[in-house]
Each structure stands twice: as C-alpha cells, then as structure tokens.
Design a protein around this nucleic acid. Sequence first.
DNA 1: CTTCCTGCAAAACTTTTGCAGTGTA
DNA 2: TACACTGCAAAAGTTTTGCAGGAAG
Lengths: 165, 165
Amino acid sequence: MSQEMTRLREEDQFLRFLRSRGLRVTGERLALCRQIFAQHGHIDAEQVLSAVRAAGHAISRATVYRNLDLLVAAGLVHKVRLGGNRAVFEHVHAGQKHDHLACRGCGRMVEFVSPGIAAMLVEICRAHGFAPAGNQLQILGECLACAGREAGPHDVVPAGEVAHA
Amino acid sequence: MSQEMTRLREEDQFLRFLRSRGLRVTGERLALCRQIFAQHGHIDAEQVLSAVRAAGHAISRATVYRNLDLLVAAGLVHKVRLGGNRAVFEHVHAGQKHDHLACRGCGRMVEFVSPGIAAMLVEICRAHGFAPAGNQLQILGECLACAGREAGPHDVVPAGEVAHA
DNA sequence: CTTCCTGCAAAACTTTTGCAGTGTA
DNA sequence: TACACTGCAAAAGTTTTGCAGGAAG
C-alpha cells in the first residue's frame, strides 16, 4: 500500500514534469512510468519493453528509449551504465542514494550504501575539478562464483580460452 | 629512456606470453603492443586502430579487437568500460593501481588513487560476497564545465532539450 | 487545428564471426 | 607441412533517427 502510494506520487510527479514543459500525457508514457516503478531493481530497455507489453500495452522499442530519457530528465529514473553494451535503469527512491557493485562475469548487481566512501568521493571530485553532485559510484568486480570459475593468479586465463576463430 | 625500457620490457613479456601458449608472433601483434604502450592514457579500439595505422602498419579492425583481448589476457592491458557502448584500454603500469573518475558529459577521464576508498572497497566486496581482487572502481560524475552547462536543480534540463524527433 | 508522439524500418555504432588466403614455426 | 592469424565483409546487439500517420490539447 505504501508502495502503491509511492508509485502514484511518482506518477504525479511525472505528470507535473510533462505539463510544465508542454509535453503530452500519452498512454505509452503512463504505462512506461507505471511499469518502471512497479519493477524491483535494475532493468534494461529490453526488459522495460517486455514489462510494458506484458502489462497489456502496445508500445514500440523506439518509444521506450525515447521516454526512458524523459524519465531520466524528470529525475525519476537513474540510468546506470555498467557492463558492456547495455545500460540499466532503476527508479529513484526518495532519499535512497546508493551505489553499485557489479560482477563483470555474470552481471549480477548489488546496491550498497557507504557513507565513508561517499565522503571520500566528494573529496576526490573536488580535488579533480568535478562537480560534487551527480556522482555515481560503480565497482566492477567478480562475485565468488565467477572468480572461482577462472584460473588462479598464476595463470590468469586457461590455455586455449584465448585463441580465436 | 626509462619509458623506452619499460616498453621493451612489456613487449618482451608479451612475447613470452605468446610463446608460452604456442601463439604466434606476428607483425600486427608487435605493432599493436608497441602502440598501446606508446600511448599515454585511455584509448578506445578505434584510436588504437588509427595509431597503429599512423605508425605505418596495415592492420584490420578485427585484428585490433582480437588482439586487444589477447593483451588483456596477458595482463598487460586493462579494459575499462565507462561511457555507453565503448570500452577504453590502458596499458598496465607496473604496480600503479588506480581508479577512474569520468565525466558523463564530455567523457573526460581522470585517474586517482585513494587508499582509503580502496580499503573500504575491499570491505564492501567481502560483505556482498564478491572476490576481493580484480575490482575496478569507477566514479561517474560531471566536470565543472559540463555541470555549469546544465540548468540548476530546480530545472534539471533546459526546456526543449528533451523533446525528440 | 496545431504540433507533439508513435510505430516502423532503416541507420548508426561498436564488437564479433565465418571463410578463404597468408604467414609463422 | 601444419595450423594459427589476418583481412574482408557480413552479422549481431543496442540505441538513434527520418518519415508519415495518429492523437493530445
């Protein structure tokens, strides 16, 4: 129920954002917004597309991309670029700032909060002439499962795995 | 001169890596290796291709990609995935572990070293079941120039910038 | 009625791969 | 001689864009 209220509040925020810009409220935009906020964690554009369609709405891939950018501009969604060629999105929980830890092997992603790191981060940004706001911390590592699947430090890559063609 | 020695040492390491696997030493591989170590900072695959060609060697894009993977496998090059669809590469300086701070606006990238963050990072990884080694920390933020180019917090995106098509 | 949006399909980009010819060992 | 490597070109995967029709205000 609290979730429901949150979703409505965010949806309302989106509507206000649209109107304040003279942009139009369309069924696709509403459906997209609702599905984004109905999802738990990080989802990529393709998953968003599936989710919206699964909810019974017709929507095209192009519209998903276009409006995800809109949600990001509205400050309702974060675009997190981690692994290779894909960006994932997550809705912004009010006041719930967190960073990401991702496995480069399987793509598993974990959120974490670390006030200590956040403080140092601000300092590092300042030292290098970066804006203190709008930072996003990402740690790429390997989960134990993926790390175990590889060879030890003396032989980084199993023979043969590297040969191509 | 010290740089020259370093380059030769790395090249030799690459040769030993190749031979230890029964892989062949080709002109393309040597040229690629030399150019990577002749470059200063982070370069993407396209820039590597240009650099090798500018040095007077014929090489194809496919070969660049295939052999960049090889250099990564040899532990001589790091593949850093930051912005959208592109990965950048940097050669590994002996013992010079660092992390990356990148501007999501202009792509400017800065390296930094922070023992404090490194320590916390290990702790966070342990807490979430990630391997303590092989981590790569990336901070996505905005340099002051790019941050200034945007609107204030009350109006995240200038009107019109978001409209599409 | 104005003009913003959407869907489709094609384009843009980066990276990968099949195949046939070339070069290393 | 054997087979690994290269180049080319096509393919693959994700995101963007032009255009014409359709809908919001």
